[in-house]
Simulated assay, not measured.
Amino acid sequence: MKMTQLFLDELKREAAGTRKALERVPEGHNSWKPHEKSMPLGYLASLVATMPAWIDYMINRDELDFAPVGGNPNKPQEWTTRAELLACFDESLAKAQAALEGTTDEHLMTTWRLKAGGHLISEDPRHINIRHGVINHWAHHRGQLTVYLRLNQAAVPALYGPSADEMF
């Protein structure tokens, strides 16, 4: 099986649980944080909704500077309604799927660079960056989001197993 197909299948599986979590994000609490060092709920939800689109960057660009001098034009957009958040998610998924469908396994073996403020953070094959920088990282932030949901009295969805609020 091709790597591109494996990533498309995994994206589809992970998207289902992500949608369930995003559908439960409470509106009107975007600035809420569980701790002063934590990111706000609205930003975290935007991050979870838009992370799949990073696959497009990893396939169609040679590098990304996520903290460029002068500001980040790729910062997740603000949302006010759950419908806007889910629309961002749908757009992000579409970008990821199109990028994966339009590439080859050979291209996924080529190098991609991640930078911050012009400094090199990592330089690995694109498939490694997609696995670690998107899929695994996405699961991490989705897990954070479920904690935020619990602390805001929203039902936590069953993702990889049942939750206290939902069986499969």
Rank of each mutant, 00 (worst) to 15 (best):
R82I: 07
L149P: 04
F7V: 09
A155H: 06
T103K: 08
A94W: 01
D65S: 05
A164H: 06
V156T: 15
I128G: 02
P34D: 09
P76E: 05
T146R: 09
L47K: 10
A94L: 11
M39S: 12
E36Q: 12
T80E: 15
A96W: 04
A96F: 04
F89P: 06
E63I: 00
R131L: 14
E101P: 00
A53Q: 12
T81D: 10
N30K: 07
E166T: 05
I59L: 09
D124K: 14
G102I: 01
A16E: 15
M58K: 11
E166W: 03
L8T: 08
K115F: 07
H127K: 13
Q153E: 14
E23H: 05
D90V: 05
D124M: 13
Q5K: 13
T18I: 04
V147G: 09
M109Y: 00
L22C: 07
W54V: 11
L86S: 08
S31A: 15
L86R: 06
D90S: 13
A96Y: 05
E10M: 13
H140G: 07
A53P: 02
G17M: 08
T146V: 05
G117N: 12
K2V: 00
P73K: 01
R19G: 05
Y148T: 11
D9H: 09
K33I: 03
N74G: 02
A83Q: 14
A158Y: 00
T50W: 05
R19Y: 12
H107S: 10
L86C: 08
M3I: 08
G133Q: 04
V25N: 07
S38E: 09
Q5E: 15
I130R: 07
L120T: 13
L108F: 04
S38Q: 07
S31I: 04
H127V: 12
L86N: 09
E84R: 01
P52G: 03
A94D: 14
P68H: 02
